[in-house]
């Protein structure tokens, strides 16, 4: 029997960086820890924005136990990287960016899409053709 399909987790916005690297005595070929986007989001909602697990799970459109599991997994991965001095890459997972963000290449800004002007840069008023990639 195939495993039950994972529900898609909603995240607000991807981080603007790809990960973290320890400095100082770095082991060559130290293994990397892959933190996925929903784990990053769980830490952000819970420990940065100080939401409760149930508020955060509603935000990500998953059940509270699932949220707690993702959060635990995220903490363990971060602890592993912290103790072992590994690099953390933020990648993959099964999530979709909830808010529709677009980028204007001319102004170098991202903006959220509203009903009034969905595909026009709010500053230079140029229509934006390319949509942000959604996985």
């Amino acid at each position: 029997m195939s495993p039950r399909t994972k529900k898609i987790r909603l995240i607000q916005r991807r981080p603007s960086f790809a990960g973290f690297r320890p400095y100082g005595n770095q082991k060559p070929g130290a293994c990397e820890v892959a933190l996925n986007f929903e784990e990053y989001e769980a830490i952000k909602l819970c420990d940065y924005e100080l939401l409760t697990h149930s508020e955060a799970s509603a935000m990500m459109n998953i059940s509270r136990p699932t949220f707690t599991r993702i959060y635990e997994s995220a903490r363990r991965k971060i602890a592993k990287a912290f103790v072992e001095g590994s690099t953390i890459c933020i990648e993959g997972g099964k999530s979709v960016v909830n808010t529709h963000w677009q980028e204007c290449q001319t102004c170098k800004i991202s903006f959220s899409v509203t009903e009034k002007n969905p595909h026009v840069c709010p500053l230079c008023q140029t229509p934006v053709l390319e949509e942000l990639e959604i996985q």
Partner: peptide
């Protein structure tokens, strides 16, 4: 913040994040 994002979407206010 995530709560602000939800609120602003509801109120139809555009968010702009410079690079």
């Amino acid at each position: 913040g995530s709560r602000v994002v939800e609120l602003l979407k509801k109120k139809n206010i555009q968010m702009i994040i410079p690079e």
